[in-house]
Design a binder for these strands. Structure first.
Lengths: 198, 198
DNA sequence: AGTTTAGTATACAGATCTGTATCCTTTATG
DNA sequence: CATAAAGGATACAGATCTGTATACTAAACT
């Protein structure tokens, strides 16, 4: 029996090979053969780990979900210390993301664009990703004692989505800066006039 | 010689059949045969009017570009009369758009998600659509005498994009309402304190 | 040592996709 | 009327896609 979880498994190799292909070329346009070539693994092994392409797509999206959110949130928390500045730092982290040459927009937005059928596993993974990103923002809004944290969180989440899409479609990484400015206005508007706590 | 431009041409039939399929299933997932079936036209006629699938895609996107912007702007102008209220009306029009059961997000955003290669005709059509939508917003910002109309226009455009994507991915048409509230805050912040002119 | 398991390499079946060719029918216009 | 253009119906060529089958190899555990 092979040791599972030590080093990189074939499963992970396949996911790591598939993700950039899905991001760059889309899911439908990425064939199994292409994934196999980039993974250094044979087609038979792929189908030993995943029952179908759809299963591989789901596993890849779920993997990316955890990976991306963890990395994104850590970067935000490293860049700033107070809730308010962290909310603004979101857009700084976004800008460095947009500026990478491997930036092809949000994987989940693009996946939904290719899969309109509702109530599918793929759609749940995508909407859940967005829900958890919004929750991350929401908790920062709570901590900064916003007057209406739910509303502010949803507004900032929409600004972030808009910045992503604008950076992608119009190839303007500085959409993040514009969104940040708008965010600061919205945040100030919800600022409680209590004494600073830190 | 057939009369061109009278009644509906075969060309237009094909485009009108292709557009909802591209919107619902994506471009790569929509085959020529499917378009042919829905158009009531044969494959030979399709290739008599378009040299390739890519040409048909481009023609369909360009057609939709004009059609959508015209309809959208007219609705905004019918819903409100002053520049400021028209800027807000954008999000009301967006909400009725999001609420249609045939809403599958923005065709151009989805198209870019499937076609990452830059400097292609398809990408130009998509980014030009977004540029012209932003220009429409920009002119309203000028007319309402915003302090920094360029900045306000870009902020509102990002809010609109974010609302579209949120309505699509999370299936929340009321993302438009949230974006509208944020927009009103940003607009008020840029309001010139001159006497009303109407 | 021997057996099982995971993996490689490769061929292949069946479906689907783009684009072309063939043959026939309709229709418009000189 | 006659001729040419447009279109319908359908088959097909060649490529690609998903998923499976076959044959061989390397490694692990008993």
């Amino acid at each position: 029996m092979k040791q599972k979880g030590l080093r990189t498994t074939k499963r992970e190799q396949l996911i790591q090979a598939a993700l950039p292909l899905f991001a760059k070329n889309g899911i439908h346009a990425t064939g199994i053969d292409t994934i196999v070539e980039h993974s250094g693994v044979t087609k038979k092994t792929l189908y030993a780990h995943f029952r179908s392409k759809e299963e591989l797509v789901l596993a890849a999206l779920r993997h990316y979900d955890g990976q991306f959110r963890n990395s994104f949130m850590r970067q935000v928390e490293r860049k700033a210390r107070t809730p308010k500045t962290r909310l603004l730092a979101i857009f700084d982290v976004a800008e460095t993301w947009f500026s990478q040459q491997s930036f092809y927009g949000c994987l989940f937005i693009n996946a939904v664009g290719e899969h309109s059928a509702p109530d599918t596993s793929l759609r749940y993974v995508c909407s859940d990703f967005k829900r958890m990103m919004t929750e991350f923002i929401f908790e920062l809004c709570i901590k900064m004692k916003a007057r209406n944290p739910q509303q502010l969180a949803e507004e900032l989440a929409i600004l972030l989505e808009g910045a992503i899409v604008t950076a992608q479609v119009s190839q303007k990484p500085n959409a993040a800066k514009i969104a940040k400015r708008a965010a600061s206005v919205l945040i100030e508007k919800q600022r409680s006039h209590e004494p600073h706590q830190e």
